[in-house]
Design a protein around this nucleic acid. Structure first.
Lengths: 342, 342
DNA sequence: TTGAAATCTGCTAACGCTAACATAATAACA
DNA sequence: TGTTATTATGTTAGCGTTAGCAGATTTCAA
């Protein structure tokens, strides 16, 4: 079998085959009214017969739109971004939009600009940023997007940006207060990388919640979201002589690493140390012990950001705002009353 | 600040500003030789001044290429696909290619065809399938791709397809033989969904390896890759009265679920039951006990498939072949000698 | 019957870019 | 000094599609 048909079939070819004008074929392809049933059928037959497929580039050029949204994301090694990309793609698809992906590996604005250029300026109708950059405001984004509507995901709460965020402060409050209510007063933390807004917000809220409760925050260290870092940092914490009866991990993976480090140091979880994570990854319920955590609805985050972006594309003058989603507390067995020995 | 500049800047605008022809601007943009240093600088200044960005659609139309590769994948809820998409994007980017994503949720060929249509025929220069479909041969794929080169990832070993695969049979052999060598003779399995080639291959090889060793395979059940299914199926296995001293799980997540189910049934891991997983996800080393598993190099899989696809794009008549990668065995603590009680 | 509205189809001109050729200026060689 | 390469720029003609207008035909009401 030949692997390429050498000649691409165009509207013109179909038109000749169906004995109509190219314009009429275009009408059929685009479901315009004002095409007689008979003609429509003839054209459709010709399309099928010749295996015609419209040329996107030509259509994009003529219509000035691409029906593509771009995603600029921090890789997909992390659970959250991968989940979001997944749901964004699905949602966009149902709205007739395709998805073009570009990942960045640093937080530098230059890198993001490069990603945007790679995305092919003007080749996307809108852009979604899954990129918790620091030190950039609306105008910065607007400039690199060059007039293309954009929505930021999981960025600074309260920022004057078109964005969809999860209220991380609230989530962290939930976690910390839960531990407090269980009687814990020596609460340490392994945060995510603090140049991520999410990590930063969770950490700050942890500090604030403790302050509000009138207790000193325990020693805290910064991880990088991986189980490995959770393990290493917790070991460091223990080695440094820190005493704590509860630990808030920046995400579930780090919580897993932390639990292992605690075990190795002879501390039982949750009897000696209670551990709380963030995200509620599908595996969290099967950790040992099943992890108490703060669930983030990444699916909703992805879905809503696409919907918002679509609205912005359809109506660029829409007033910008921030949509806020709230995480929910999931109690399992990795945290218990301080001093419990059941 | 205005959010859109209403008028898009074209080559013509830049040409006027720099007092050269549009063609010369095009030459500068595309780094053609034969542009004097002086002119080049003048054009670049004009580009910067006007914040000109080339129109992809127009370029695609004129050059007949898009510098985009499509990925058709089974979502990214699973670790493997997400990893691959990640590395594919990175590799493609370094070669000057962008990535367009389309996911499918069923194995039906129609669904894949739809995904391909969504990808925008002719709007990608090549396609990567992360889609272990059953019952489709080269011609089927060639047809829906309509002359666009494609590479299949993680498909049937030995199939006459342009593809990059991991030798799952070998990996499964490694796992099973390891358990056998530890003295296990009652070995059960929780496989992945058997309509996935990978799962099927691992499962079949498990059967074959046991047969070769002259022992009966223990009872086996089919999961869906999730920890939850690993848990449920293992519980079913136990409830059904199956006795086994070792369990091969289709991936690490299911191994995690299995371990939890075993614990709840009062069986220790690995003293009573040894467990082996597949993939070596980053968390596996921090499971309790750290998981013995078969590492899949998804990064290499992604990278190689892109490289192969690029070669195919550059030279469509390249003889088709299958690249095979081999998994490696990673010994940790979830499996030990049968009857050990240390 | 007559005009007006509705329905159907075709023509022409973009959309913004690049390939290919044509031209002009400069350098290189015998 | 002419002949040929080399470098630098402009001109023309598409790439395959859709928008917008212009006819042509049919339907409907007065």
């Amino acid at each position: 079998m030949p692997k390429s048909d050498s000649k691409r079939i165009t509207l013109e070819d179909v038109a000749r085959e169906a004995r109509v004008s190219a314009q009429t074929v275009s009408r059929v392809v685009n479901n315009h009214p004002y095409v007689s049933a008979d003609t429509r059928r003839r054209v459709q037959d010709a399309i099928r017969k010749l295996d015609y497929r419209p040329n996107r580039a030509a259509r994009n050029l003529a219509t000035q739109r691409s029906c593509m949204v771009g995603i600029i994301s921090f890789g997909m090694t992390h659970y959250g971004p991968a989940q979001m990309v997944n749901h964004i793609e699905r949602t966009a698809r149902t709205q007739g939009y395709g998805v073009s992906l570009s990942t960045v590996s640093t937080f530098s604005f230059d890198d993001i600009r490069r990603a945007m250029d790679d995305l092919g300026d003007r080749s996307v109708d809108g852009v979604l940023f899954i990129s918790p950059v620091t030190g950039a405001d609306y105008d910065d984004f607007a400039h690199i997007c060059g007039g293309v509507p954009f929505v930021l995901i999981d960025t600074q709460l309260g920022a004057q940006m078109p964005s969809v965020v999860i209220d991380q402060r609230y989530g962290s409050q939930l976690a910390t207060r839960y531990l407090f209510d269980l009687g814990h007063r020596a609460i340490s933390a392994i945060s995510g990388p603090l140049d991520w807004f999410g990590a930063q917000a969770r950490h700050q809220s942890w500090l604030d919640t403790l302050a509000a409760a009138g207790i000193e925050p325990g020693p805290a260290l910064e991880g990088d979201w991986t189980a490995s870092s959770g393990y290493r940092k917790t070991r460091d914490l223990i080695k440094s002589g820190a005493t704590f009866t509860a630990l808030v991990a920046g995400n579930d993976q780090m919580a897993l690493g932390a639990i292992r480090a605690l075990r190795e140091a002879g501390r039982r979880v949750p009897e000696d140390v209670s551990v709380v994570g963030f995200d509620d990854i599908p595996e969290a319920a099967y950790f040992d012990p099943p992890l108490t955590t703060i669930r983030q609805d990444f699916a909703a985050l992805g879905k809503q950001s696409v919907e918002y972006l679509m609205a912005l594309i359809a109506q660029p003058d829409l007033p910008l705002h921030q949509r806020v989603l709230y995480p929910v507390f999931v109690a399992r067995q990795s945290a218990c009353k301080v001093g419990s020995d059941e």
